[in-house]
């Protein structure tokens, strides 16, 4: 559990960016921070990830490894995306073979345009964003911090991103992310906080979610059902994250369609 207590941030010669932020982040939480431009949400995320040190207050309980995806990934090197990620895998403790394989898997999954031999300096904004994302996931993180991860990504990568986020949270990790489109966050996050003028405004909503594991075949009956945040296949079962209030409804429909319930967690 990561705890921020009275966190403030001030850069020399400028007004405070953050003031008195208290925030608790639990395992399996997908925490969204919303706010306008310059509201301090990027700074808050940098402090959560450990990139910036707070000027006042404390951050305790940050787990390792941490994955941090900045809003922009400026890279001017000639090194290929695959080699860059392999290096990052090794820095995070993988051997060369496993680092290379993991890099290839992630880039395949994110469908990097131009292939994984593309040099960093030749990547478009969206593709650079994919490399930054893969960099944070080379070793499955206990804490994943994403600054506007949807910006610049194509539509097909949106679904992959949601799956990757769900994987991290499903494995017991904590995910913190921002976006300025509240609708996107409501669909993904389990907890939403709003930040305004460097202060955290009372949480706007907490969605009670349930995770349902189903086994079976045929057309998925939950497709298009209200309250279903996401579904992805994990081995023989399909793992569905659903609004807690709609959980029974989903189970009833699934059982009626001949699917078998393997597990329900709140």
């Amino acid at each position: 559990m990561i705890e921020l207590r009275g966190v403030g941030k001030r850069y020399p010669g400028r007004p405070a960016v953050l003031r008195g932020v208290d925030l608790t982040l639990r395992p399996r939480d997908i925490v969204a921070v919303t706010g306008g431009n310059g509201s301090g949400k990027s700074t808050l995320l940098r402090i959560v990830a450990g990139v910036s040190r707070p000027s006042t207050g404390t951050v305790t309980g940050r787990p390792a490894p941490v994955g941090w995806v900045p809003e922009r990934f400026p890279a001017q090197q000639r090194v290929s995306a695959r080699d860059y990620l392999t290096h990052h895998g090794r820095i995070r403790g993988l051997d060369t073979h496993r680092a290379r394989r993991r890099a290839g898997e992630l880039l395949d999954r994110l469908a990097l345009v131009g292939g994984d031999a593309t040099r960093l300096r030749d990547l478009s904004k969206g593709n650079a964003q994919k490399v930054a994302l893969a960099q944070a996931l080379v070793v499955p993180p206990e804490l994943l911090v994403l600054d506007e991860p949807w910006s610049g990504l194509d539509a097909s990568a949106h679904a992959t991103l949601r799956e990757l986020i769900a994987d991290v949270a499903g494995a017991g990790g904590t995910v913190v992310l921002t976006d300025h489109r509240e609708a996107v966050l409501e669909a993904t996050a389990t907890v939403v906080h709003h930040i305004d003028g460097g202060r955290l405004v009372a949480r706007t909503s907490t969605v009670d979610t349930a995770v349902v594991d189903l086994a079976g075949s045929g057309p998925p009956p939950w497709r298009g059902m209200p309250g279903v945040f996401e579904a992805h296949r994990d081995g023989g079962v399909v793992r569905i994250r659903v609004d807690g209030a709609r959980c029974d409804e989903l189970l009833a429909v699934a059982l009626h369609e001949g699917w078998s319930v393997r597990g329900v967690r709140r």
Partner: peptide
């Protein structure tokens, strides 16, 4: 930014 990412890793 890149240096910060490397530092996190």
């Amino acid at each position: 930014t890149q240096r910060a990412m490397t530092a996190v890793a």
